[in-house]
Structure formats: C-alpha cells, structure tokens
Amino acid sequence: MLSVYGRYWQEQVKAYAKADTKGTDLRKYATKDALGRSIGDALSLKQAGNIMRGAPRSDADVTSINLDKKIPSAVIKDCLDVSGWETVESKSGKVLPFADDALTRYETIATAEKWGAQWLITKVEPQERGC
C-alpha cells in the first residue's frame, strides 16, 4: 500500500507540473476525496497561471490497518517535505516564494482502502504541524 501512496504522489507531481490531471494515472491510485483534492488543486494552479516544479519528499509509514472490514482500510502517516517543490508562474518562469509562515515539512495523514485487489488512496489530510 505504501507503493500506491508513492505512486499517488508521483502522479500528482506530473499533474501539478502541467496544472492538469489529464494524461496522468491519478485515477489508478486515488479516489474519493484524495482524487477530488488533486483535481481541484490542479485547476487552481491553472486558473492562477502557475505550475509546480520539483517534487515533495515523503517519509511515510502505515500506522494502522484493518483487514477485517468489508472494505479493508489503512492509515498512512507521512512527514511530507515540500521545500523542493516550487510554485512557478507558467509564462515568466518566476518562482513564487513560500509565505513566511508556511510549513515546508509537515505531517500528512492519508487513508487507503482496498477495492478488490487494488489499494487506493481515498483521503489525504495535511496537518497544521511540522515534523
């Protein structure tokens, strides 16, 4: 399931690099809130005339798993480092700085569910605390 979480982030990086989820495999790795959030973020980037360059670094662990439910689920805790993932103006190439109070390393809690043979990321919640 951690491999699915990693692929989710790889596909999200691809989407944000062009401010569009079309042509990515996000739907293979995410659904529900996680997919909706990625689509919405890509749309926001596009509307603002921005893209993302670089990639976040992840340090994720499965903190709980429940295989006895009708739909097995798991919780993934991550310390996400976005310091190397820059917002860039599409036309000018100008890097937009992080806000002074922005966390560049923060805890993220993700939920995954097993649909058939495939684990999918269903929710990703950035926390307002560093790690």
Results as ranks from 00 to 15, higher is better:
residue 120 L to C: 03
residue 76 I to R: 04
residue 107 E to R: 10
residue 62 V to E: 10
residue 19 A to H: 06
residue 14 K to L: 12
residue 95 V to N: 08
residue 12 Q to I: 00
residue 94 K to A: 14
residue 23 G to R: 09
residue 4 V to R: 04
residue 21 T to S: 08
residue 88 V to H: 08
residue 108 T to W: 01
residue 48 A to C: 03
residue 3 S to W: 03
residue 99 A to H: 10
residue 66 N to A: 10
residue 114 K to A: 04
residue 36 G to Q: 13
residue 108 T to F: 07
residue 2 L to K: 03
residue 95 V to M: 06
residue 55 A to K: 13
residue 84 G to E: 10
residue 30 A to P: 04
residue 86 E to V: 03
residue 131 C to L: 05
residue 124 V to C: 05
residue 112 A to L: 11
residue 59 D to L: 09
residue 7 R to L: 11
residue 107 E to A: 11
residue 106 Y to I: 00
residue 71 I to N: 07
residue 26 L to E: 05
residue 67 L to Y: 08
residue 104 T to V: 15
residue 57 R to T: 13
residue 92 S to Q: 09
residue 23 G to V: 06
residue 59 D to Q: 11
residue 59 D to S: 14
residue 50 N to G: 01
residue 85 W to P: 06
residue 8 Y to L: 08
residue 117 A to E: 12
residue 28 K to I: 07
residue 105 R to C: 05
residue 64 S to W: 04
residue 79 C to V: 05
residue 98 F to I: 02
residue 57 R to C: 05
residue 51 I to F: 11
residue 35 L to S: 02
residue 100 D to G: 14
residue 122 T to V: 15
residue 24 T to M: 09
residue 88 V to P: 01
residue 12 Q to G: 12
residue 19 A to K: 08
residue 79 C to G: 07
residue 66 N to P: 00
residue 5 Y to G: 01
residue 68 D to Y: 06
residue 126 P to N: 06
residue 14 K to E: 08
residue 48 A to H: 09
